[in-house]
Design a protein around this nucleic acid. Structure first.
Length: 829
RNA sequence: ACCCGAGUGGCGGAAUGGCAGACGCAGCGGACUCAAAAUCCGCCGGGGGGCGACCCCCGUGUGGGUUCGACUCCCACCUCGGGUACCA
């Protein structure tokens, strides 16, 4: 015996270190971006580089995407798999404030740690093409995109209500307000009206909605986007009030005969004009209170509704009757016209309000299919106990009585139009995207204000507008960004007239950074352009995008919007950036999302140190379908390790048997012969199942199929080389370093990822003889073995002859026989 | 409240109209060992019957339905997770 036959134990640390170095040295993961044979852009959502490092949930997500990329590569695609860092934003800034360091110091440190972890876990990342959103070489082009939108009229400034914490002296995002209080200091949050930059995403609402139908995305994600865009079909109707007209929006024009009062939002511009003198004091007081209330709690639906009458009267254009006009903050100025017609009989909110203030409630829809106006007409006199929001037929509605609700919507709208009282209108819930932040840690918005020329875009040659390295980046109570305190930076000549100008001091939203990073990846390093046209044409749209469903709405929607605008401006040829999107599940710990505040973060490093990255990857992917996620517990990790150990030994045995010229004995060599017919069938079945699992992101079933095959191979003692090589290929996506090492031990020179994913023959995946289940009245009573070629009559005859079946037939002949070829016979007696 | 998703052994899960519990973890029994670890072999949803090969009954959150046949499809409900939150 030579040394070659000696069993070497699997040492993951050594194997993984070796292949990490080998990949870097051989440039294994660096595809030719200019001449790709079959490009496959494998994208995963880039992380925010927190101080805690990547936790198990991140590893689960990245590994899941990486496995898919590696699988595609084995299928012969030229896979580009980049990664980067979403490093601007309030998260980083707040963390830096808390520990008293500058984000410019903290972030690079975190990034270094992230990169170490990402390399350690074995991602197939192309490190030539990494993106850091805080790098001026990147945000130069984020600013360029802002200006493209600005020049196209898609970026504009307007006043908007924001949450203001008087203690922290800062604007708070809606998520930072809890129960009307600042989540950090507990102070009561106020509403402040500030000038903000917005993007006109609402111009694209219809297209953003319609395009969803053609995308290969998870249904959950598409549904979330649809709900967010929130299309409503209805009508805008004018109500005459004190010499002017109040326009309201409704999705229920059919209920207009039941509109018993109008409600205006406190901010509505007509409130002053219509309020009668006697009510002015009450209305003014109410408006002041409403304006002071923070945005979040004002919008909370659980709150008791409040309001005041204006004393004015409107004319219901359908009934011609006068109805009172109220002001109440349950009506929002941002949606529709900021005024509603209240139909308490058929709207829960209006019902609640009408009940509280003793306003009239009139039913105009009768539940049920048949018109029963007479029966229903009596009811308005009684006190209704709730709003009726279901379908039915019109009552108390003049000429429309008896019509079905759906038909009435169209008919009433047409009638209003003919009367000049209103018109059909489609609205979207989607708001324009507020992109400005009165903060420090972001890309400065590249606008210069000039008293003579107005706002001027920073000329492209002057980009990037560098974020100045100010020491005191804490927000103050001025409501403007800390950048305003940096005088040398703030004062700048006007690019148009050269006279004194001032920089915009707001920075842009982090979501803008992440709305185009995938467009930058292929062109990283080309510093004179944001994205190279040729590269972009080759690589985009993204072939596969995998990420968390927490970004299902904002990030994906904003990215789609930005691409739509760039497309419209002729910068990119596509409109939709992500051909296929799948949301991975979330890994939780003890039922809760992993977070530092909950103290339940599981750090992957220790598991990788103990078990190796490949075992850890296999374990994570074996937990369940990628789309499911789950509760993290580490008690099963030894299973995947044992699996790899067994495959390792098998590879060693095969290599040893063939390797030493003097070594192998006749008996060892004989085991290298072809597998039995039964094992051959299992082999092909395993390949089939493994392939399906990869395609559907159900890697757990792929791994299970390979485990089963390995067990069968070991049981038979088979050392057939082709079979063992394919076992290695089948685990390669989940256990890449391991597979490389095995591939080399089997005598191959190059990377296992330059080999091909095993093909299967569906015809070979079936045994010559099959086991068919025999049921009597749907209950399994026996199993019979038949030849694969057996036809129905033979199988049924065999089933009837089976003693176990006869016992349950009680001598009766079956009334009906169902035969599912190759699977089952059901005898109904 | 509304929208989406999920409920299957002790645990992670498999089976998407055709043998429920694949694969793995944990557990139990055995082999090897002075011993332990590792490894290997066997058992492993519950109940009942048989010396035994085996056989019977129950079982996929609850209640109904469709079907020869339902974890799978339909209706209603319960529980958990996620998202949205007065959008007229």
């Amino acid at each position: 015996m030579t040394d070659r036959t000696a069993e070497t134990a699997y040492d993951p640390q050594a194997v993984e270190a070796k292949w990490r170095a080998r990949w870097a040295e051989r440039r294994t993961n660096e595809p030719d971006l200019d001449r790709p044979a079959a490009p496959f852009y494998n994208l995963m959502m880039f992380p925010y580089p927190s101080a805690e490092g990547l936790h198990v949930g991140n590893m689960f997500a990245f590994t899941g995407a990486d496995v898919y990329g590696r699988y595609q590569r084995l299928r012969g695609r030229t896979v580009f798999e980049p990664i980067g860092y979403d490093a601007f934003g309030i998260h980083s800034e707040n963390y830096a404030l808390r520990i008293g360091e500058h984000p410019g110091v903290v972030i690079p440190r975190n990034i270094a740690n992230f990169r170490r972890q990402l390399e350690r876990v074995g991602g197939m990342f192309d490190w030539r093409h990494t993106v850091d959103t805080t790098d001026p070489a990147y945000y130069k082009w984020t600013q360029w995109i802002f200006l493209e939108l600005y020049k196209a009229g898609k970026a504009f400034k307007k006043k908007a209500a924001v949450n203001w914490c008087p203690n922290d002296k800062t604007v708070l995002a809606n998520e930072q307000v809890e129960g009307g209080r600042c989540e950090r200091c507990g102070a009561l949050v106020e509403q402040r009206v500030l000038e903000q930059w917005f993007f006109r995403i609402t111009d694209y609402a219809g297209r953003l909605l319609d395009n969803l139908d053609g995308l290969d995305w998870s249904d959950t994600t598409r549904t979330a986007q649809r709900n967010w865009i929130g299309r409503s079909d209805g009508a805008e109707v004018g109500f005459a009030v004190a010499g002017s007209t109040v326009r309201v929006y409704t999705t229920r024009p059919d209920t207009i005969f039941g509109a018993t009062f109008l409600v205006l939002a406190p901010e509505h511009p007509l409130v002053d004009a219509i309020t009668v003198p006697g009510q002015r004091a009450a209305v003014d007081a109410y408006r002041r209170t409403a304006l002071a209330t923070d945005v979040v709690s004002r919008r909370s639906g659980d709150r008791q509704k409040t309001g005041v009458p204006t004393g004015a009267t409107a004319i219901n254009p359908a009934t011609g009757r006068p109805i009172p006009v109220w002001v109440a903050d349950y009506v929002l100025m941002e949606y529709g016209t900021g005024a509603i017609m209240a139909v308490p009989g058929h709207d829960e909110r209006d019902f609640e309000f009408a009940t509280k203030y003793a306003l009239p409630i009139v039913r105009v829809i009768a539940e049920g299919g048949s018109p029963r106006p007479a029966a229903f007409a009596a009811e308005p006199e009684a006190t209704p106990s709730a709003a009726y929001t279901g379908g039915g037929r019109m009552v108390n509605s003049g000429e429309f009585d008896g019509l079905d609700v759906e038909a009435a919507k169209t008919r009433v709208t047409a009638w209003l139009e003919s009367q000049g009282a209103g018109e059909g209108k489609t609205l979207y819930r989607l708001h324009d995207w507020c992109v400005s932040r009165q903060r420090y840690w972001g890309p400065p918005i590249p606008i210069i204000y000039c008293d003579h020329c107005g706002p001027q875009p920073v000329p492209e040659r002057d980009l990037p507008v560098l974020l100045p390295p100010v020491e005191d980046f804490r927000p103050d109570d001025s409501g403007v960004s800390p950048l305003a305190r940096h005088k040398e930076w703030y004062h700048v000549p006007c690019p148009a007239c050269g006279r004194e100008g001032r920089r915009e001091t707001d920075v842009s939203d982090t979501f803008l950074d992440s709305a185009w990073y995938f467009l930058r990846y292929p062109s990283v390093g080309l510093d004179d352009r944001p994205f190279d046209p040729a590269r972009t044409r080759r690589w985009l749209p993204v072939t596969s995008y995998i990420g968390g469903n927490e970004h299902a709405v904002l990030h994906l929607l904003y990215s789609r919007f930005i691409m739509m605008v760039l497309h419209e401006l002729g910068h990119v040829e596509f409109e939709e950036p992500f051909t296929r999107f799948r949301a991975h599940g979330m890994i939780v710990k003890d039922g809760a999302k992993m977070s530092k505040t909950k103290g339940n973060i599981v750090v992957p490093d220790e598991y990788i140190a103990k078990w190796g990255a490949d075992t850890f990857r296999t374990y994570l992917m074996f937990l369940g379908p990628l789309t499911d996620g789950g509760d993290f517990r580490d008690d099963g990790i030894s299973g995947p390790r044992r699996f790899l150990d067994k495959l390792w030994s098998l590879v060693g045995e095969v290599a040893a048997a063939e390797g030493g010229a003097s070594g192998p004995t006749a008996s060892t060599a004989g085991r290298g012969g072809p597998p039995s017919a039964a094992l051959t069938a299992k082999w092909h079945r395993a390949k089939m199942r493994a392939t399906e699992g990869m395609e559907e992101l159900r890697y757990n079933t792929s791994i299970a199929a390979v485990m089963e095959l390995l067990n069968a191979v070991r049981e038979e003692g088979c050392h057939h080389r082709a079979l063992v090589e394919e076992l290695v290929l089948l685990v390669a996506p989940v256990a890449p370093h391991f597979a490389e090492e095995c591939w080399e031990r089997l005598g191959h020179q190059g990377s296992v990822f330059d080999a091909r994913w095993p093909a299967f023959d569906a015809a070979l995946a079936v045994d010559d003889s099959l086991e068919v289940v025999v049921q009597v009245n749907g209950k399994t009573r026996s199993r019979i073995t038949i030849d694969r070629s057996a036809a129905e009559p033979e199988v049924v005859a065999a089933a009837l002859a089976d003693p176990g079946v006869q016992r349950h037939l009680d001598g009766k002949a079956p009334k009906k026989t169902i035969y599912v070829p190759g699977r089952l016979v059901n005898l109904v007696v």
